[in-house]
Amino acid sequence: MSAVSTPPAPEAPASARRDAEATKAAILKATRYLLARHARADITLKAVAERAGVSPPLILKYFGNKDALLARVMSFHTDADALLDAPLADLGRHMVRHVLSSQREQGTDPLLRIAFAPLHGDHGDVVRANFRAQVTERLAARLTGPDPGLRAELAVAGLLGLGVMYGIARGPHLRETDVEAITDRYGPLVQAQLTPGG
């Protein structure tokens, strides 16, 4: 007698995956908005759900609980994975392209969240510590030569300035110029900190 095999579950349609990603993004955006204005303890899943236009159970489905959601919002780990996903010799160009593509496709630059971290209080301290550990220190660990920490911070500062000019100041010349053209001009400036003299 042969064993009965269970057919694999059908894969979710691409549109359903896109909708799920858009919903998660709306939840994260709503949480960031509330965290910039309220203490962590005062934020409820109901408030996040109302701001995101979803139900509280949907937040639980995607993120597990309030603590997990807040931890995700205060983390840069996933964003840093994408930002730093290139060989060191081409990393400056990759990082510039990534920041601009994020702005154009998602209307936001995940790194720019650091600019909105509260100056005082536990939330701001956690966000800054995460940013240092997950972005600048991680980048510095890849660099060779003198002053890797300083060079990493200068490279990231250049990216943050680019993100501010594009997303906040809304520089018209920057916004209407092709991403690759900007990458050709700005990538070498960032790369100069990553591989000085290289």
Results as ranks from 00 to 15, higher is better:
Met1Tyr: 02
Ser2His: 11
Ser2Phe: 07
Ala3Arg: 12
Val4Leu: 14
Ala12Phe: 12
Ala12Arg: 15
Ser15Arg: 12
Arg18Thr: 09
Asp19Lys: 11
Ala20Leu: 09
Ala20His: 05
Ala25His: 03
Ala26Ile: 05
Ala30Glu: 04
Ala30Thr: 08
Thr31Asp: 01
Leu34Ala: 10
Leu35Gln: 13
Ala36Cys: 11
Thr44Leu: 04
Leu45Gln: 14
Lys46Asp: 13
Val48Asp: 04
Arg51Ser: 11
Ala52Glu: 11
Ser55Thr: 12
Pro57Asn: 03
Ile59Tyr: 03
Asn65Gln: 09
Asp67His: 11
Leu70Ile: 14
Arg72Asp: 07
Arg72Ile: 01
Met74Lys: 10
Met74Ile: 00
Phe76Gly: 03
Phe76His: 05
His77Gln: 13
His77Tyr: 07
Ala80Trp: 11
Ala80Cys: 09
Leu84Thr: 08
Leu84Gln: 11
Pro87Arg: 08
Pro87Trp: 01
Leu88Val: 12
Met95Thr: 08
Val96Ala: 08
Val96Ser: 07
Arg97Gly: 04
His98Lys: 09
Val99Met: 10
Leu100Tyr: 05
Ser101Lys: 10
Gln106Pro: 00
Gly107Cys: 07
Thr108Pro: 00
Asp109Ser: 15
Ala117Asp: 08
Ala117Gly: 07
Pro118Val: 06
Leu119Phe: 07
Asp125Tyr: 00
Val127Ile: 15
Arg128Phe: 03
Ala133Trp: 01
Thr136Ala: 08
Leu139Glu: 02
Leu139Gln: 03
Leu143Asp: 02
Leu143Val: 03
Thr144His: 13
Thr144Val: 07
Thr144Asp: 15
Gly145Met: 04
Asp147Pro: 00
Ala155Ile: 02
Val156Ala: 08
Val156His: 09
Ala157Pro: 02
Gly158Ile: 02
Leu160Asn: 09
Gly161His: 09
Tyr166Asn: 08
Tyr166Met: 12
Ile168His: 08
Arg170Asn: 03
Gly171Met: 01
Thr183Leu: 00
Arg185Gln: 14
Leu189Ser: 06
Ala192Cys: 04
Leu194Ala: 06
Thr195Glu: 15
Pro196Val: 05
